[in-house]
Amino acid sequence: MIPLHRPGSSLLHRAPAGVKLSILAVAALVLSLYPHDPLSIGIALLAVCALYAVGRMGSRVLGAELWRLRWIVLVLATALAVFVSPVAAWISTGRVVVLLLLASLLTLTTPMSALLDVLRRLLHPLRRIGVDVEAVAMTISLTLTMIPVVAGFAERVREAGRARGVRLGPRAVVPMLVLALRHADDVGDALAARGIG
């Protein structure tokens, strides 16, 4: 798995993993359920940028995270602008970007082992009804890390095409799919070696 955590001593690095996970969950609920206007989405985006500064990530890290989301933003915003309206495109795309940036910030400032511990504790009561808590916790943590991992694959494919002087376009999906499937096999082998799944 690609290591995402960046060690540091900022306020966000020192905050308990449970608190950060709770804030992400509340933010997801508020962004999903509360009706927003373009101004509130703009404020939310500025607030997330401020959180990156609080976590001492710097504009370079924030820029890299935004760059990784460029295709999601482009496809979603274009589709909504064409089929709904530019305002709906801004609001919906802004919601997605805020949540994905928050999820990335969580993984950047929190070791995966700490996240897994919190998820295990939260899910522990479900053991009584036969839920495999270890597998569910691992699935959630893997889900949190998949966006930057797949974005990394896209970057590798693009750089390989550029090095060969080839513009892949839609054909880039094939090597990306191969890399994603290989990564899934590696993760599956690693989980099996730990007795999970």
Rank of each mutant, 00 (worst) to 15 (best):
I129P: 01
P111V: 09
C49E: 05
L191T: 08
L39V: 14
M112R: 15
A192G: 10
A47D: 04
T93V: 11
T93I: 06
A154L: 06
L115K: 07
S113D: 15
W67N: 12
P148I: 07
I196Y: 15
G169K: 00
V30A: 12
R127E: 13
L51C: 07
V166I: 15
T107S: 10
I72R: 00
G130P: 02
P38G: 07
A27P: 01
P86Y: 07
D189C: 07
R158Y: 12
L69M: 13
I91W: 01
L115R: 09
G197Y: 11
G195Q: 06
L12W: 03
T109W: 01
R182D: 15
I72F: 14
S141G: 12
S104G: 09
S141N: 13
P38H: 06
I91E: 03
A88I: 06
L122A: 13
S113T: 14
H13I: 06
H5A: 13
P16Y: 10
L101R: 00
W90A: 12
S141P: 02
R70S: 12
R128Y: 14
I72M: 14
A25V: 10
I129L: 11
G188H: 12
R6W: 06
L39C: 09
L142F: 04
L62N: 04
L101V: 05
R194D: 15
L126A: 14
L108V: 02
E134T: 12
A81L: 03
H183V: 05
M1S: 15
I196V: 15
A192T: 12
S104P: 02
L116T: 07
G63L: 10
W90E: 08
M112C: 07
T145A: 15
